[in-house]
Amino acid sequence: MIPAQRSIGELLTAAGTSNALELRGVTRTFGALAALSDVTLTVKPGERRGVLGSNGAGKTTLFNCVTGDVMPTSGTIRLFGEDVTYFPPHERIRRGLRRTYQISLLFNGLSVLDNVYLACRGVSRGRFSLIRPRRSDALMQSAFELIEAVHLGAQAGTMVAELSYGQQRQLEIALALAGAPRFVLFDEPAAGLSPTERSELVEILTNLPRHIGFIIIEHDMDVALRVAESVSMMHNGRIFKEGLPSEIESDPEVQELYLGGGHG
């Protein structure tokens, strides 16, 4: 196997800077199946990383381990230098981590505004407040701004269940950008979107403030390679290659495994 190239992230670790995300030997098994085996990954603050891999490669499981939705069987996870391996999800989120879900996880009984408001409230104080929010409240204002940013301004009062598929995907992104995110995990945000919606998505992602780093799982090479500065390739629960998008695109092994056999 070709040895993995040292990413900029790894070079920075060597210099002693704290990484946005640092996984060491993370393994997760489901029964006999190793969905993740011995994954080591470093992403520096502000870095934008693409994760590519065939179906069942373990990409979503990687995200689940990072957010705490699933506990790793072994290994450690550090978030901005802090060991969060055994933290519950909400503690990680409060430290600036965010994520979207491959299959939208929204609050169907609530309106778009309520959904985004909850996301803003979740990462600020007063989660137990018994006082109703007003339109002029700072949090409500930022909820409205987020809704505008994902082009759902006209749907603020609409029930989530009544949104189109594409709109639900946009709402997913709004929920992940609430508060002051420092690092975001996007799980196939472009899946099922129309070409127009895709370019809107690329625009949203490229226009994120520079200090916000993210990992994006994306089957669509077009989207992935346009927003990512570096790419990690996964197969059978392992990261087998890291590199610049141009290198990945032209790598024969990737071409064979990913574009040829694995996917499709």
Binding site: P89, H90, R99, G109, L110, G122, R127, F128, L130
Partner: peptide, 27 residues
């Protein structure tokens, strides 16, 4: 009144989708 307060809204969010509420920072 409380049903529309942050506390009540979050409770309804938890009813609809506890996993996502956790991923939004709620205990």
């Amino acid at each position: 009144y409380v049903a529309r307060s942050p506390f009540g809204l979050a409770l309804q969010g938890i009813r609809d989708n506890p996993r996502r509420m956790s991923a939004l920072g709620f205990n």
